[in-house]
C-alpha cells in the first residue's frame, strides 16, 4: 500500500521492518509499532492516512498473534533490551569499520539503521542521554560518509 505523503517521516522505519521480516521478526514488529505510534501523531484524520494506519494495525495484530510466544514480543521490557542490543551491535560494527578506515555502503547503512532503531526505542519510554548521542552520531556519520563517497573524497 502506498505511503501517504503526510506519513513520509516513517518510511525508513517501515522499510527497516520489511528488511527484517525474516531475519529478525522482533525488530520488524517494533519498527512497525514505532511507525504506528508516530504515524498516529502525524496524521490519523485524513482518509488516506487512516486507511494506511488501519492496515498497519492489522499487520501488527497479526504479527503479535504469530509471535506471541516470543518473550521479546509478549514482554516489552525484553523487547526493549532486544532492540537496544541490536541497534548497538549495528552501531559498533559501523564504528569499527569507520575506525579501521573501511568505508563502504554496508557500514553507511549500518550507521543509518542503528539511528533508526534508536528512534524505535522511544516506544518504550524516554531515550537515555547516551542513546540520544549515539543516534545523533550515527545519523551524522551516515550522511557524512555517504557524501564523501559520492564526491570521491576520503572521510576523515
Amino acid at each position: 500500500m502506498a505511503l501517504p505523503a503526510q506519513l513520509k517521516p516513517i518510511q525508513h522505519h517501515l522499510r527497516t521492518a520489511q528488511e527484517h521480516e525474516k531475519r529478525d521478526p522482533v525488530v520488524a514488529y517494533y519498527c512497525r509499532l514505532y511507525a504506528m505510534q508516530t504515524g498516529m501523531k502525524l496524521d490519523s484524520k485524513t482518509p488516506e492516512c487512516r486507511k494506511f494506519l488501519i492496515k498497519l494495525m492489522d499487520q501488527l495484530e497479526s504479527m503479535k498473534k504469530e509471535l506471541g510466544d516470543n518473550d521479546s514480543i509478549s514482554q516489552e521490557v525484553v523487547g526493549n533490551a532486544h532492540i537496544e542490543n541490536y541497534a548497538l551491535k549495528m552501531f559498533l560494527y559501523a564504528d569499527n569499520e569507520d575506525r579501521a578506515g573501511r568505508f563502504h555502503k554496508n557500514m553507511i547503512k549500518s550507521f543509518y539503521s542503528a539511528s533508526l532503531l534508536l528512534d524505535v526505542l522511544s516506544v518504550f519510554g524516554e531515550l537515555s542521554e547516551e542513546n540520544i548521542q549515539h543516534r545523533k552520531y550515527a545519523r551524522w556519520k551516515a550522511t557524512y560518509i555517504h557524501n564523501c563517497l559520492k564526491n570521491g573524497e576520503t572521510p576523515q
Binding site: Q37, M40, K45, R50, M57, L60, E61, K64, E76
Partner: peptide, 27 residues
C-alpha cells in the same frame, strides 16, 4: 456534514488508539 465527517474521523481515531493499547496489553 462536515461535523458528521469529523465525528466519524474522531471515533475511528479512538478505535485505533484502543487497538494500540490492547496490542500493548495496556487495557
Amino acid at each position: 456534514s462536515s461535523t458528521l465527517a469529523s465525528s466519524v474521523a474522531s471515533s475511528e481515531q479512538d478505535e485505533l488508539s484502543q487497538r494500540l493499547s490492547r496490542l500493548r496489553g495496556q487495557v
